[in-house]
Write a protein that binds this DNA or RNA. Structure first.
Length: 110
DNA sequence: GTGGTGACGACAC
DNA sequence: GGTGTCGCCACCA
């Protein structure tokens, strides 16, 4: 856990998201103690592709379970990745969002 | 140093 | 209940 950067924490959490599960920007932000700054999480995701290691950013969606970042994955890529993990996606929105939602503040311990 | 921007969230209307 | 507005903080020009 590198406390140096806000992003490092974001990436750490995102990488810990189990397969077949998703979480929200706000949940990550809350886990990091900056729940009001969910934008920072999204901003971090925007630059995650510049990192050497891969970030399962497709598992991170907004509070409504909507694949807002789909466009940044190059179209259908995000939906396919989610469906491949057993997550049903309908019109850019995750079905049974509650059942696949993974809350880091509950699943992880600081 | 200032201002604009952003893959969001909560609240007001 | 959909839309609009503000806030939030880090980064880039």
């Amino acid at each position: 856990m590198t406390k140096e950067n806000f992003f490092e924490n974001v990436y750490e959490v995102v990488k810990l998201i189990p397969k077949g599960k998703v979480t929200s920007y706000g949940a990550i932000a809350a886990y990091l103690g900056v729940k009001s700054s969910s934008r920072m999480v999204g901003w971090a995701m925007n630059h995650c592709h510049t990192l050497e290691y891969r970030i399962p950013a497709h598992r991170v969606v907004n509070r409504n379970g909507l694949l807002t970042g789909k466009a940044h994955f190059g179209g259908e890529r995000m939906r396919e990745l989610l469906e491949k993990e057993g997550i049903m996606v309908e019109k850019d929105q995750i079905m049974n969002f509650e059942s696949v939602f993974w809350d880091p503040s509950k699943e992880l311990i600081l």
